[in-house]
């Protein structure tokens, strides 16, 4: 299916279906992100049903959660925490953010710093240079030597309707290194298409071909990086029916099993 059609549909009515709502302490919605400056790093917020939610502070490539983009809507999948508000927003934690691919010029809100919204904690890195290390850990680390196991499983997680991106460099490197070090003979790759249950009860499904595309892309990338002598077993699966509004982001994934 044409991806642009899917995305447009996703933002409207087609492509989403009504289902039971997620638990009350979950907030799954699509909205324009908002960036608010502070005296240190900016905060990222989003509004839903008249309330402001805190998504994340500005981070870097090594962070587990990365800020969204102005110029695009964001899919927010989070749990309301009992932490004090940050930058005026209710803290969603854990939270998964997916940048919607189509441009949206209406998502352009930048708020100035205000004393009352300054962070009450020191961010892992200031807005300029770091303190000598990546604030959230090395995004691509050379893995330990392969354990003597017959089979090892890896998982790559994805943003909604998205293929491989910067954060996959590390797990792909780990797969590559493990396959080389263990003398692997076969790799099983399963790509999953998923859906997310929004707080308004609608089910937002990924592109119909997303599971296949993810699986095939991972196989291509591993071959492209030099793993050409392995037997590739590439499959894909539709898991859109598993969406419950809780941790649906974890369903968007590729599972890779490397066998000796």
């Amino acid at each position: 299916m044409n991806r642009s059609i899917v995305t447009l549909a996703m933002m409207g009515l087609a492509g989403v279906a009504n289902a039971a709502a997620p638990p009350a302490n979950h907030r799954n919605f699509v909205a324009c992100p908002i960036v608010r400056d502070t005296s240190s790093v900016p905060c990222w917020l989003a509004e839903y049903e008249g309330e402001t939610y805190f998504l994340t502070i500005q981070t870097d490539v090594s962070a587990p959660v990365n800020p969204p983009w102005l110029g695009h809507k964001v899919l927010v999948e989070g749990t309301v925490s009992d932490e004090p508000r940050i930058c005026g927003g209710i803290v969603l934690k854990p939270v998964a953010l997916s940048v919607m691919q189509e441009l949206d010029g209406s998502c352009n809100t930048m708020l100035p710093a205000e004393e009352r919204y300054n962070l009450t904690f020191e961010p892992p890195r200031p807005p300029g240079p770091s303190k000598g290390r990546l604030a959230f850990g090395d995004p691509v680390t050379k893995p330990q030597s392969a354990a003597d196991v017959a089979s090892k499983s890896f998982e790559l997680r994805y943003e909604f309707d998205s293929l491989v991106m910067f954060r996959h460099a590390q797990p792909l490197q780990q797969i590559l290194e493990h396959a080389r070090q263990s003398g692997a003979s076969r790799v099983q790759i399963t790509g999953y298409r998923a859906a997310t249950l929004l707080s308004n009860g609608q089910l937002m499904r990924e592109d119909e071909q997303m599971g296949r595309r993810r699986a095939e892309q991972v196989a291509d990338l591993l071959r492209g990086a030099g793993l050409t002598d392995l037997k590739y077993d590439v499959k894909w699966q539709d898991e859109t029916k598993r969406a419950r509004g809780v941790d649906d982001a974890a369903l968007r994934r590729v599972q890779v099993v490397v066998d000796r």
């Binding site: 960036v35 400056d37 500005q58 981070t59 490539v61 800020p67 807005p127 300029g128 991106m165 910067f166």
Partner: peptide, 16 residues
């Protein structure tokens, strides 16, 4: 740059 985990926009410096 903005697409590699820093967000868009990002408040940073030349050396970023």
């Amino acid at each position: 740059l903005n697409t590699v985990g820093l967000g868009n926009p990002t408040k940073r410096t030349c050396s970023t």
